[in-house]
Design a protein around this nucleic acid. Structure first.
Lengths: 112, 112
DNA sequence: ATGTGATATACTGATTATAATATAAAAGAG
DNA sequence: CTCTTTTATATTATAATCAGTATATCACAT
């Protein structure tokens, strides 16, 4: 039980709708780690259909694919991040980290 | 129809649970402006019960009151921000603004 | 005294979001 | 070729949110 106030932030991207945030980012990282949408969703306690949908939405809005997917084959299929996907993810995390640092600084400045 | 990607952020505060964010902040500002929880909720298209609950939760977690409320009387009642409430709100908005500036800067730096 | 409109709080119903399920397709391994 | 496991997608069930409703209280104005 956190007994002290803690600041938190959610960085999102939107066009016509919000299509990217910490949830998709985490999911994509797990996909990179495990090579499968299925396994990544399981690890996050998220249903496959939900995971698939939020990735598709992000891809549609961004206009490029996050994943190379293959179905069938030895282990049923696999998914891996595209080059552009990796790059976008890295930039998101980079920006998010810098922003969180700033948040901590500002928090102690305003509320410390 | 926003044809270009736009970053957005939500700054929240939490202890055992999230108790403060842009929603409560906006609501409190409308209360200050209109002198009534009822009117403020209406302006936001939010039910009174919801508005009342999120304010109560924030007050409980923070340990001080946001509002001086009076019921009865000529116009049925009114609510106004406490001194501590105003101060907290100002600090939240101040911090949020600074963070948004930083977000814009980082966004053009990372994605510009 | 009574009417009025807002606070205060609990409860119920509707909406929304999400999980769960179902079905098809795919292709390498045995 | 069939089996396996995942992708792909739609549909259905369930859970979480939230609006709406109900009831009580309050104190000033008429």
């Amino acid at each position: 039980m956190a007994e002290v106030i803690q600041p938190g932030l959610r960085l999102t991207f939107q066009k016509d709708e919000r299509f990217f945030g910490p949830g998709v980012a985490e999911l994509l990282e797990y996909i990179e780690e495990r090579g499968s949408i299925q396994a990544a969703c399981a690890k996050m306690g998220m249903s496959y259909s939900k995971g698939w949908k939020i990735i598709k939405r992000a891809e549609k809005e961004l206009g490029f694919a996050f994943l190379h997917t293959h179905n069938g084959g030895a282990h049923g299929g696999k998914s891996e991040l595209t080059c552009e996907g990796k790059e976008f993810l890295l930039k998101y995390r980079g920006m998010e980290n810098r922003l969180k640092q700033e948040m901590e600084k500002l928090f102690s400045q305003y509320f410390g």
